[in-house]
Amino acid sequence: MLQFKLVLLGDSSVGKSSIVHRFVKDTFDELRESTIGAAFLSQTIKVESEDQQEVVIKFEIWDTAGQERYKSLAPMYYRNANAALVVYDVTQEDSLNKAKAWVEELKNKVGDEDLVIFLVGNKVDLCEGSDNEDKRAVAATLAKQYAEDQGLMFDEVSAKTGHGVKEVFQAIGQRLYDTKKEELATRQRGNGNDGQVDINVPRPSTNDTTGCCS
């Protein structure tokens, strides 16, 4: 089993917690309370290796609080992450700007090529159907263009209906597996171990001490 750390970032109430709960518990709660500090959850998925074998991946997920005021705490959570899910709300224009700021920060502070960043537009259910098209505040093409420019993965989802949520994590898992498998293979050979092994794949620590009280 492979273990990866994943962090969710994005403005308050864009639906980070909702996405995680959809993925981990397959539930949606309209009245979920705002996150304070951060919440920790985990979930496993399976990806396919080249030789069509199933590989189990365990995600350790940090769901952070979105408000600007708590920004200084975020490094605690993203500093060892393998992947970051940067979320915005497709009905809130400003939330994309917040998302872009997070992408900037990740690129500056983490500076690791291997960090997988996935930009996610949430709440597409709100602008489904022709009479709700006007609810949309961020055009998919616009966000997609930005993602391509920055080399991010991108998709739109709905935590409410579940649309696209699993696929996001599946894609991240696959990508992480693909980029790490070489490294893994060498390690496995070195160990002389051919079966399933528990391998932690932490990113090299950035020695980032921007944490709250450090």
Binding site: S12, S13, L31, R32, E33, S34, Q67, D94
Partner: peptide
């Protein structure tokens, strides 16, 4: 407006049980 927006979002998510 940003403040009000945040307040309203949090009020709606507060102790609703």
């Amino acid at each position: 407006e940003d403040q009000v927006f945040r307040i309203e979002k949090d009020v709606l998510r507060n102790d609703r049980d």
